[in-house]
Write a protein that binds this DNA or RNA. Sequence first.
DNA 1: GCCGTTTTCGGCCCGACTGTTTTCAGTCG
Length: 518
Amino acid sequence: MELHNENPFKVRSFQNAYSSAKKLNEELLSKSKEDLTLVPGIGKSVAAFIMDLRENKPVPSFEKLVDLTPEGIRDLLQVKGMGPKRVLTLWKTLNITDIDQLINECESGNLARAKGFGEKTQQEILEKALLFKESKGKLLYSEAEKYLEIISQSLPHAFLTGEALRKNQIISEAHWIIDSAYWPPVLYDLKITEHSDESIAGVFRDELSVRFSKSTQNASKTAFVESFTPIVREHLSISENNITGTNEDDYFHSLGISPIIPELRWDINARNYNVDRLVKNADIKGLVHCHTNYSDGVNSLQEMIDQARNLKYEYIVITDHSKSAGYAGGLSEERVLQQKREIDEIRASVSDIVIYQGIESDILSDGSLDYDNDFLHNFDVIIASVHSVLNMDENKATTRLIKAIEHPATNILGHSTGRLLLQRKGYPLNWEKIFDACKANKVAIELNANPRRLDLDFTLIRQAMDKGIMIPINPDAHSTQGMGDVKYGVIAGRAGGLTTDFVLNALPAREFISKLKK
DNA sequence: GCCGTTTTCGGCCCGACTGTTTTCAGTCG
């Protein structure tokens, strides 16, 4: 609609309907047309539109817009920094209608000649477009997971290996090995892109890139060898010729090393780690970093607390956004105190969970926190996170974060680089300095368990542990469902060698809170 | 297109940032 000169306010109303529906805590599709119009932002027209979509009826006004829009334009809108206005300008003046054309026109310098564009914008868009292209066809592990399960169940004789077995945070291609007796595999919903006697590659359900290879010797052995990265394979002399037996335990035994969990098979030092000490799901005792509908969460305070109780956590730390985060409904001082009163009421009615009131305080661009120092005393836990001006260079970003770390009220550094996997690179940091500052100021660094963040990156965990820094695994939950993300943080932690004694929220409530005090 | 109203029209979230402008448009979070 934006690309075809619809009334901007009409566009806005569809956007409002969408974001309102998204925040809805029930299935949109189970509602009657009358109930739909009760949802704020959904009126007669949008309700009718939803009903038509639900019954698979073509909606002429909508189909017409789709027909008028080249396929590749949708990709362009996904590129960060490209909104509908810029996409439209480039489409109409330079006839750019897909990502490759966009990249070409940037590289040849033509983009800077378009009205409203310049050298810097061109460079910025080129970087973001290349990142988009590189990310295309790849999935987050959390997105790939369900497909991996389906395929593994459909093909019981296929051995999963490679990055998918290691549970990499990003899956570019899931790889299975199959014995010749079961070759070739038969799988529904697979669009085959490559086919030979030894290998079949394709896309499963239009989302997950997959590859099946026929094993020349023994599929189990081949999959075992291929589950290690090449550098680890070489380092530990792992090849099909020097392993014997029928299962992984045998293979490790024949190599003379103790078993290495799949998550760690990228790390040449993995065999030196004690697997029993690595963090596991059951170790996590408290849910730290949870949002409610006081700010941009979906569920109410009560609902979040009840779900944490259902999940048998000992404590929950409510951390809504702070006042500067206007776009996310950040809390004014008044709202913080209102929430405090509500928490007190709930505390009086439940005895099986400890509730802490925290805040996810914005780190402003100069490194300061978001409320007056006096007011910050209202919170039990303060997570300091960057949400704006995400493009600083290493020096500026490091200085900014260190100032926040040195603030006497800061307990935990939230998603430290601001990255969004497959979407946005984080700002660069001098980790040595960040870790030293955290150590000196008793500040923990969160491992944000949201599968799109997983920030602190797992490759930095050992370095942080060596400095003695505590690393809570936090769901950054924006709904009761989001609490389940803890498991992705645990996977990342294990991949990074994170041991339970360094996981701040593996501590019981009282020890957790006293460890924070400075 | 939606909403609210002292209701059938008139207004629709916003602050920060950036780059391209020479006072603002576009995008992001």
